[in-house]
């Protein structure tokens, strides 16, 4: 279970309070009826599925109820940053911290103190 920092509540809370809401920074076309099938497919069906840094929306549904964005490493599941909706996409390195499967805390953080 993830620990997620809500940028509105300014607090780390359990994943149980949150609902994942998919890719962030997707702009709906302003003339959706006029776009081509390829553009509609890209907008509606194609999602980033990176092994590494992902930018995604979360909703603090059992808390403040607000949507915010997060940058997370999909190999370690570690949140690098959460930020308020409307803020620009942060410039972060896309490669994962490690390519190997992370099964323990120590693998990512070093020896537990």
């Amino acid at each position: 279970m993830l620990l997620i920092y809500c940028p509105y509540c300014e607090e780390e809370r359990s994943e149980l309070e949150f609902r994942g809401a998919g890719d962030a920074h997707i702009a709906r076309s302003t003339n959706i009826a006029a776009i081509s099938d390829e553009e509609f497919e890209a907008y509606f069906f194609l999602r980033e599925n990176p092994k590494g840094m992902i930018f995604e929306r979360w909703r603090h549904i059992h808390g403040c109820g607000r949507f915010f964005n997060a940058a997370r490493d999909t190999v370690s599941d570690r949140f690098v940053k959460t930020y308020k909706a409307g803020e620009p996409k942060p410039d972060l390195h896309p490669a994962p911290a490690t390519a190997a499967t992370v099964e323990t805390y120590e693998a990512l953080e070093g020896d537990a103190q």
Partner: peptide, 13 residues
């Protein structure tokens, strides 16, 4: 799980 991941683990809940 409700999020994209390559972690081969998954949440306890």
């Amino acid at each position: 799980d409700q999020y994209n991941s390559y972690s081969q683990t998954g949440g306890i809940q």
